[in-house]
């Protein structure tokens, strides 16, 4: 057994294609972008080596930390919302009527491109004609807020479409994980008299713990580098109130001709994500992966 499963050649063959692609197409650009971060470069003329200056500037840049805070909030929200997705998935995976149809319906938003989702929610949030404010006014709110224009609430407003957009993605993963649990285990628990809640919490949850941990990492990493909807819906505004790390990086590199500095910010984004991920992995670490 051990001999077969530790054959170096086989391992190399299995790892090689993926490692090659990721190494060449992700790691080389990554190293290059860290290198550009050492340059003063507008992306047009000549480069000038400035050492760690860009990184030092970034660390002292209040706008960068503002955007980091916004990204971090987004990560916290996204992680918390996983609990909701998981609960819905559990309901869908249990044998209730219509679960199959409901699951498909729940996944629809994730099929749409971000362009479409952003346009939809811009219309929902429109202060005068928008659906949300019309409903609020109909039920008696006199002055519903201008969701995307108010710097105090814009970030929270944007979180709603993000929550909505990703519902399908996580429900899909959880659903597949839950369906992967052998029926016999659940049947046995049921015969022992466990209630559905008990089965969910005591049996299903521990069995899909590995998947849950992975989704936590995905949610955090995805949020910290999140860009699409925010950029289309607010452009990071008003006055930076919804700027996140990735949109800040994009603006620096592509709009304001500070390509060197933008690359440094992009690399810091990666470092921050890495640190947060390592911490989260440590917190959720488990000595032995669950097996059955």
């Amino acid at each position: 057994m051990n001999k077969v499963m530790s054959n170096k050649w086989v391992i190399a063959i299995y790892i090689f294609p993926a490692l090659l692609l990721v190494g060449v197409l992700i790691f080389i650009p990554l190293i290059l972008s860290a290198y550009y971060g050492l340059m003063e470069w507008d992306g047009i003329g000549d480069m000038k080596f400035v050492g760690l200056e860009n990184y030092i500037t970034a660390i002292q840049d209040l706008k960068f930390w503002d955007s980091a805070l916004h990204s971090f909030l987004l990560a916290v929200f996204s992680t918390l919302s996983l609990a909701g997705y998981l609960a819905v998935s559990m309901i869908l995976a249990s044998k209730i009527k219509g679960a199959d149809l409901l699951r498909k319906i729940y996944l629809i938003p994730m099929l749409l491109s971000s362009v479409a989702i952003a346009q939809l929610w811009i219309k929902v949030f429109n202060p005068a004609n928008g659906m949300l404010n019309r409903i609020l006014m109909a039920i008696g709110f006199e002055n519903p807020p201008a969701w995307l224009a108010n710097p105090d609430i814009v970030l929270y407003a944007i979180f709603i479409p993000i929550l909505w957009q990703y519902a399908g993605f996580y429900i899909l993963i959880y659903y597949a994980a839950l369906k992967n649990i052998p029926e016999t285990i659940i049947e046995a628990a049921r015969i022992d008299g466990a209630s559905p809640l008990q089965i969910a919490y005591r049996i299903k949850l521990p069995l899909i713990k590995g998947v849950v941990k992975v989704t936590i990492v995905l949610a955090i990493v995805g949020s910290l580098k999140y860009f699409d909807l925010i950029y289309v819906m607010t452009g990071g505004g008003p006055n930076g109130a919804s700027e996140v790390m990735a949109s800040y990086m994009y603006k620096l590199a592509f709009s304001t001709n500070e390509f060197g500095y933008g690359s440094a910010v992009g690399f810091l984004l990666l470092i921050i994500t890495l640190i947060v991920t390592v911490i989260v992995r440590k917190i959720t670490a488990d000595k032995d992966e669950i097996q059955y």
Partner: peptide, 21 residues
Amino acid sequence: FNDGHNGLSDQEAKSMFMNGQ
């Protein structure tokens, strides 16, 4: 100016004008 102008695109503002709002 219309409410929430800081959150509206020019395109949206234009259509308000063009719809007589």
